[in-house]
Write a protein that binds this DNA or RNA. Structure first.
Lengths: 357, 357
DNA sequence: TTTACTAAAGTAAACGTTAAAGTAACGAAA
DNA sequence: TTTCGTTACTTTAACGTTTACTTTAGTAAA
């Protein structure tokens, strides 16, 4: 049996003795076509099991109804839930989403963007990889006439004229450190992040600024970069621990980093929060199930995804009026069992306490 | 400014005074073209910033180099890591992957499959939704000449002539229950699952069979279906708890179900493992970070993804020789801090114990 | 009756590529 | 010299749609 040849408009048209265009119009609900004809076309189409060829449609209409979404990772609560929202919202606008995973790798990122351009997606949402250096690819994408929106992670400095939807990394970070200070901690470390991307820079900046503002000396050996993953947290804690003098509390730059810290602490028999306390940026579905339940700055993944799609849609529909600039989504401090006053002052039993900024 | 018109083969051909086909062949490394010409074409192409139009290419070549992947959920460790593997493996074969999320919803599932067919993907991998009833859609996809492979979750009974890559649900389940029995538990409950899909049926079957084989009465009120998510675990535990008589140990049909059990136990002040013990099917990156660290039957997500892509590739390349049947991936019992002999007989400190079947 | 408009079709061309078949030039084998 | 094969192209015809323009018939207004 040869390659199965699909039913086409011509097949339907042949059956009814009309032209292909009539069929095409009928199926798309074009007003040119009479109700009777429309009904007939639809009937025959479903009889034959017709499935429109989107490639042909897209080629002809010069519109793909496809969105590109590039993220560094999937198996991670933050990205997982953002992706789900983007898919759902895009679908509401009749767009399909093409997901690409860069694995925090700049080369793959470039290749993915080229593929997306090649597929002629109508717009792209990207969360850049951590070690991103060369931003020329983004200018190229723009030159190809495809709207591009940065989500959560933006190259630092951002390419000029770029549009972004981000969370208030700096403000959230300030919230977290202020909480640690309020509990009474005076030695606070910071694990994770780096300087190439906004989220690392701004979260660490919020940390140092808040300490300085309170007149607390910033100790460089307690600021341990190394990325955003669990390994970064694990290794970071180990380095801190080997250095000898350990801070009373650490601020983890992401949720996976905090997980790494938990794992390392467990391995070294350091009790959280008695020996060392933890607070982090970013939440997860299991945050409240860890022991102790992790307090964190929560990023509203849903709003992030929704806003990104909304703004990208505007960019697609009105390419002339490029808004540009950044839409900043506020964060929220969620206090559970870490980084709270030792004698349960702040935390209500069961329910977490929420503080907005 | 009008819709940016892209560089095409014709533009490059015009520059060089050759035909479009020559350019097309040169860019694809066709042997017809001389080295000199190839070099020139490539140079001009990159000068002009040429990006091939994949829609046109796919339409003409009647091959999309696209794979469809339909899953019930993303923000879930199991699916997250399977998805990542599928993407990576597909890429090795020069295929892009189109991901679709059904949200455990049969209607969306059907729609997604229709869209994938419409995009003329070359093959589809699907993990069906939990409450799936009507399997006619799968026959339709097949009739459209698109190879279809079920991964992990298969409709029960499976459509005849179907191909699947699954894990050894029954065997893994037996491993888990035997472990619980070995620890000395004689009252064991089972939370999660349902009857429409293989994973629920087989895991529960393994549970009941093993109990029976050991002469332990199976108590229906301790088998609580309700799906595969965290809510199923939470609600399941609550129902068990309200019933009064609680088993000494519960077997959670999936990892998220176990999470729900943990959350519910925490809310009801039931200590794990002292008051009630837990073991589950499926692992996660945070499994070892829970307190107590959760023992489980681990599914090799990577092998699952790899095998699925490998077999699908064969189905695409040799549509005549449909292998059919199921490829079963073995599971592994990982013992951590739950469901182990109370006085640390089985568990080595730090490292988890692994048992293969 | 003429003109103008509208509804419901049809025709031709285009979208950007690839596949298949054709051609010209040249060298080697018969 | 003829025949054959090879190399490096070109030409033609798809692939399955949509878009823009044209046609035809019928109806209403002038």
């Amino acid at each position: 049996m040869k390659k199965q040849s699909h039913i086409t408009l011509a097949d339907i048209a042949g059956r009814l003795g009309v032209s292909r265009v009539t069929v095409s119009k009928a199926l798309r609900g074009h007003p040119d076509i009479s109700d009777g004809m429309s009904k007939n076309v639809r009937r025959v189409a479903s009889e034959l099991g017709y499935s429109p060829n989107r490639m042909a449609r897209n080629l002809s209409a010069r519109k793909s109804h496809l969105l590109g979404l590039v993220v560094p990772k999937i198996a991670h609560f933050f990205f997982g839930s953002v992706i789900e929202t983007v898919y759902a919202k895009a679908l509401e606008h009749k767009y399909e989403t093409i997901l690409m995973v860069s694995h925090e790798n700049e080369e793959q990122e470039v290749q993915h963007l080229q593929t997306l351009v090649s597929m002629r997606v109508d717009g792209i949402i990207i969360s850049v990889s951590a070690r991103l250096k060369d931003t020329r690819i983004f200018d190229w994408v723009k030159k190809m006439g495809i709207p591009l929106l940065f989500m959560d992670r933006v190259p630092d400095p951002p390419p000029k004229g770029s549009t972004a939807v981000i969370v208030d990394d700096y403000g959230g970070s300030v919230l977290a450190i202020e909480q640690a200070l309020a509990v009474g901690y005076t030695t606070i470390g910071c694990i994770g992040g780096d300087r190439n991307v906004n989220i690392g820079r701004n979260r660490v900046q919020g940390y140092t600024d808040t300490l300085k503002r309170q007149g607390i000396p910033v100790r460089e050996e307690w600021i341990i970069a190394g990325g955003y993953g669990t390994e970064a947290g694990y290794n970071g804690f180990m380095r801190l621990h080997e250095n000898g003098q350990v801070p009373r509390c650490v601020f983890a730059v992401t949720y996976p980093v905090a997980l790494g810290v938990y794992a390392a602490a467990k391995a070294r028999n350091i009790r959280i929060p008695q020996d060392m306390d933890v607070i982090c940026f970013g939440d997860s579905d299991v945050g409240s199930l860890l022991t102790p339940a992790l307090s964190c700055v929560s990023q509203p993944t849903q709003r992030l995804g929704e806003e990104s799609v909304r703004i990208l849609m505007e960019m697609i529909d009105h390419p002339e009026s490029v808004p540009g600039g950044s839409r900043v989504i506020p964060t929220e401090l969620i206090l559970r069992e870490t980084c709270v006053a030792s004698k349960g002052a702040a935390v209500l039993s069961g329910e977490a306490l929420r503080v907005r900024n």
